[in-house]
């Protein structure tokens, strides 16, 4: 935890400095580049917090696509901003008030990294612990569809809220003899993919991900609507 904390602090401090740079520097190209650096720093921070998928995405998006977008825009516009007054006091006041209010709200939160926080003992863990079966077509919820397996194995018999549960599952989805033994028509899938982020993303919250795809598609269509040159042929 401690080395983590040290690196975390250093990276966050750097990120704050770079963020101030993004806002204050006059050259827009420099601001864009600093923005890319900020994204890479964020990717490092998230890597440090073990959010590997998020770090990967931030590196690809923040440092990659966003930079392409911004540089592409700068090709059309000018490269420098006008000189503006050093500090915009009403904005500073708003920001300080909003920020203090947000910090005020963090006071009653569970401690950072506290494993007994509701978010770590709540609904997701029951899902990942495979304590939740699917709902059948009559709307009946078959909770804990692995109950048959729980009887077979003592290891599964554990308190409701432990995370992560001690459990094992076949690496190979197909041809597993156990599948037939407890196969309920609406069973949970036999074991998650090792990357639980992907299984949450594509299965439990697959519906959100579909709209995420739709959001990207919308952005693409908006670009086409707004920027595509008229076709010359009649």
């Amino acid at each position: 935890m401690s080395s983590f904390l040290l690196i975390d602090m250093i990276l966050l401090g750097l990120a704050a400095v770079v963020a101030i740079g993004v806002i204050s520097v006059r050259s827009l190209l420099s601001a864009t580049m600093l923005g890319g650096i900020y994204s890479l720093l964020m990717a490092l921070i998230w890597q440090n917090m073990n959010a590997v998928d998020v770090a990967f995405t931030e590196a690809a998006v923040g440092a990659g696509i966003s930079t392409v977008l911004l540089v592409g825009t700068l090709l059309h516009t000018r490269r420098e901003t006008n000189q503006s007054p050093a500090i915009h006091w009403p904005a500073l006041l708003t920001v300080v008030l909003t920020g203090s209010f947000l910090i005020y709200g963090t006071v009653d939160m569970p401690d950072y990294g506290d494993a007994s926080a509701p978010i770590h003992t709540g609904r997701v863990q029951q899902l990942l612990g495979q304590r939740v079966g699917k709902v059948d077509n009559e709307g009946v919820h078959h909770a804990w569809t692995y109950s048959t397996m729980a009887e077979q194995s003592v290891e599964r018999d554990e308190p409701e809220r432990s995370f992560p549960p001690e459990r094992s599952h076949g690496e190979d989805h197909g041809g597993d003899a156990e599948a037939g033994a407890h196969g309920h028509p609406n069973d949970d899938f036999k074991g998650h993919s090792p990357n639980t982020v992907t299984s949450l993303l594509a299965a439990y919250r697959g519906y959100d991900t579909m709209y995420e795809t739709a959001v990207i598609f919308t952005a693409g269509m908006a670009m086409v609507l707004l920027l595509r040159r008229r076709e010359e042929r009649a």
Partner: peptide, 13 residues
């Protein structure tokens, strides 16, 4: 009530 992906209420969407 409709459960997306047949995941029950509080867990799925």
């Amino acid at each position: 009530v409709y459960n997306l992906g047949s995941w029950p209420g509080p867990w799925g969407i």
